[in-house]
Design a protein around this nucleic acid. Structure first.
Lengths: 207, 207
DNA sequence: TGTACATCAGTGAACGCGCGTTCACTGATGTAC
DNA sequence: TGTACATCAGTGAACGCGCGTTCACTGATGTAC
C-alpha cells in the first residue's frame, strides 16, 4: 500500500483514494468492525486528523467504499455479459458468475455493500441506491431476454430474478466466509457449477 | 428483557442465559460490532465484571451464541421436515424454508453463525463444527432421498446440495439485510416462491 | 518572470468516551456434622 | 434443627487502550497582477 515515506511531499497526492484502499485492507483483514479512521490514516502514512479533509466523518468513508463497490460490481457484470454476445442464457449466467467473482476478489467491498442495513449507512444516498438497482437490472434484463426468446420457462419474471439473485448472492457469501469445503473445487468451479445447475432448472425443455 | 430490579436476589438465577439474550438483542439492534460485554451486563442488570463468572472472555460469549444458533437451526430444520413425512421433496423444501425462517426470526444468531470466519471465532470448536455439519446433513440427506426415488434429476449430489444451500442462504441474507423490495411479498411468500422455483428446476421430468 | 496572498491539505495536542480485563472484596448459598 | 465453613456469584474501583472528533496551527500550492 501507498504508505508515504519520509521525505515525501507534504501533500499526499491522492489521500482520498489511499484512505479508501486502506479501509478495504482493514475490512478484508478484520471485518467491517476492524475499520478505523485512525488506522486507515496510519496506513496511508498520514495523521489521524488528515482524513477529515476528505470525509466529513467515518460514515462517509464507509459510504464511499459502498458506492465504489456497486459501481465496480455493475461494470464487471456488464463486461461479463458482453463476452457472451448472441447467447442470452450464457450472458445471464456470466453476469451471475461475475457477481460471485466480484465478491471473492473484493470481499471487503462485498461485506460493506451487503452488510446489515444500519441507519446511518442507509442514509438515503440516492446515488448508491441507483447503483445497486443498476446491478440488479442487469440480471432482470438478462432473464427477461431469455424468457422472451423461450429459453427460460414462463412465469413471474421477478420470481426468477429473486431466485437467481439469492443463489449467486448465497454462493458468494458462503465462499467468502469460508463455509464451502475445499474439496468442492476452486472458487470458479463452484461458481460455475452452481450457476449452470440453476439455469438448467430454469430452462424451458422441449415439450 | 430480564433486567433485575432493586431488591432482587443478589444472585441472578441464570445470568449466563440473560447474557446470551442480551447479546442477541445487541447484535440485532446494532450488528455484531454492537455487542459489548459491558452493555450486555448492563442489560442483564449486573455489574460489568459479573460476566466473567460465566464466560472467560468476550469471545466465549460469542461462541456460545454461535453454538446455540446451530443447534436451534438444526432442530428447526428437523421439525419442518417431520411435518411433511412421506413426501421427500416437500421435506427437503420445508427444511429450506425453515432455514430462511430461522434467519428472519433470529437475525442475530444468523449473523454470528455465518459471519466472517475470523481467527478467534473459528477457534476449532469441535462441538460447533459438528452442529453446523449436522444442519447441512439434513439438506444432503433430503436431497439424496429425492434423487434415489427419482424425484430429482441425476447428477452430483454435492452440486445439488451446494446450489440449494446457496439459494436458501442467499435468500436469508438478502431478507435480513433489507435488500428485498417490500412489494415482493412477505417473508414467507418470498421463501416459498424461491424454494418452489428452485425445486421445480431440480425435478426430473417425465421423458 | 517575480511577488503577494488566498486557499488548500496537512500537523499534533487535546477532549471525552466506552471498552475489555483484573483484582481484592463481600454477600448469598449449600453442605457436613 | 442449628451452626461453621467452604464455595459460589456477585461488586466496584482501577488499569491501560484506542477510538472519533475538534481545533488552532503551518507548510505547500496556485493564481492575479
Amino acid at each position: 500500500m501507498s504508505v508515504r515515506r519520509k521525505g515525501d511531499a507534504y501533500h499526499h497526492g491522492d489521500l482520498r483514494r489511499a484512505l479508501i484502499d486502506a479501509a478495504l485492507e482493514l475490512i478484508a483483514e478484520q471485518g467491517v468492525d476492524g475499520l478505523t479512521l485512525r488506522e486507515a490514516a496510519r496506513r496511508a502514512g498520514v495523521t489521524h486528523s488528515a482524513p477529515y479533509r476528505h470525509f466529513t466523518d467515518k460514515a462517509m468513508l464507509v459510504a464511499a467504499v459502498r458506492r465504489e463497490g456497486f459501481e465496480l460490481l455493475h461494470r464487471q457484470m456488464l463486461e461479463a455479459r458482453e463476452g457472451c454476445a448472441g447467447d442470452p442464457v450464457a450472458q445471464v449466467k456470466a453476469s451471475g458468475v461475475a457477481y460471485i467473482a466480484f465478491a471473492v476478489a473484493r470481499p471487503a467491498h462485498f461485506r460493506v455493500m451487503f452488510g446489515p442495513d444500519l441507519p446511518e449507512q442507509s442514509a438515503r444516498d440516492e446515488v448508491l441506491h441507483a447503483a445497486s438497482r443498476r446491478a440488479y437490472a442487469v440480471l432482470v434484463d438478462g432473464l427477461e431476454a431469455c424468457q422472451r426468446l423461450g429459453l427460460v420457462r414462463d412465469g413471474d419474471l421477478r420470481r426468477f430474478a429473486m431466485t437467481a439473485w439469492a443463489t449467486v448472492h448465497g454462493t458468494a457469501a458462503l465462499l467468502i466466509n469460508g463455509l464451502v469445503p475445499r474439496r468442492d473445487g476452486g472458487v470458479t468451479e463452484v461458481a460455475r457449477a452452481v450457476t449452470d445447475l440453476l439455469y438448467e432448472g430454469f430452462a424451458k425443455r422441449a415439450p
